[in-house]
Simulated assay, not measured.
Amino acid sequence: MGSPTETPTIIMVQGSFQLPDAYYKLDDALRALGYPVVHPLLPSLTDEEKPGFATKSLTDDALAIRSEVQRLVEQGKKVFVVMHSYGGLVGTEAVTKDLSFDERQPAGLPGGVVHLFYFAAFILPTGQSVLDVFGESPNNDVKPDGRFTIKNAANILYHDLPDAEAQEWESKIINQSYAVQKTKMTNEAFGFVKSTYVVCENDRGPPPMYQEKFGEMAGSKIQKISSGHSPMLSHTAELTRMIDQVVKSVIETGAQV
């Protein structure tokens, strides 16, 4: 079954319009604390030049995450899922009940997903898509070829970074397949895996009041950080401490909190 104090592997599920580079500070800070960190690529943000890119949906992204989670769980690993922004939808869709620690343990199976950690993340119930619930965001730059990106990223995503750094990250913004907007959710991982939701109090993307509602809907323990939308860049040390504290609580209780 593995040691009760075994360090979980952290799966990082990123948000829209960015390369994984935007999460390297957080990934590296967690690794420095001794956590194995896996950051899978999302198909809706990868290989834009290849035919079929614009057909990649949230379902494809969720399958990519599920594949990595399943690989780790089948190795007997405990998995702690960290999700940011759009990644909240992907992780919630990806983690099915058969992969949860609480489902596997009574069956005598090792490993499993022990906790969900959301920050500035979208959460929707089954049967709903982003477009169903929110309509088209005025911040979106929708292109005629099935791609979209975000306008004014420095101001919306990175406003609490120094100007030069915010502009640098804005220059790295990439296109995403628009199909993710239309994908309806089919799974609610928060229904069978306990969760924490960190509200970014100064967010200019999803409003903090919405974030609180997302956390309440998921039944999460809600925490707050005085950051904009990208605390993995602007408040790396504080966010790392928050994740570390939750993981330690999970380890102390043997599974979840």
Rank of each mutant, 00 (worst) to 15 (best):
M1F: 04
S3K: 15
T5Y: 09
T7L: 14
F17V: 12
F17I: 13
Q18K: 05
D27I: 05
D28C: 10
A32L: 05
Y35L: 03
V37Q: 10
V37C: 10
P40H: 07
E49P: 00
K50E: 15
P51G: 04
D60A: 01
D61W: 02
L63E: 02
S67G: 12
E68R: 10
R71K: 12
E74D: 14
E74P: 00
G76Y: 02
K77I: 11
K78W: 14
F80Q: 04
V81W: 01
V81T: 09
H84V: 05
S85T: 05
V90L: 01
G91T: 02
A94Y: 12
D102P: 06
E103A: 04
Q105W: 06
G108Y: 15
G108D: 09
P110A: 15
P110K: 09
G111L: 05
V113L: 11
V113G: 00
V114S: 11
F117E: 01
A121W: 03
A121G: 13
F122A: 15
I123E: 04
P125Y: 08
P125W: 07
G127E: 05
N140S: 15
N140W: 15
D141C: 00
A154Q: 05
N155D: 15
Y158H: 04
L161D: 13
L161M: 07
Q167S: 11
I174F: 01
N175M: 10
A179Y: 11
Q181E: 09
M185C: 13
M185I: 15
T186Y: 04
F190A: 04
F190Y: 11
F192P: 06
S195G: 07
T196G: 05
R204I: 13
G205A: 15
P206Y: 01
M209A: 13
Y210W: 06
E216H: 13
M217N: 08
K221E: 12
P231I: 02
S234G: 09
T236Y: 03
L239G: 04
D244Q: 14
T253V: 14
G254P: 07
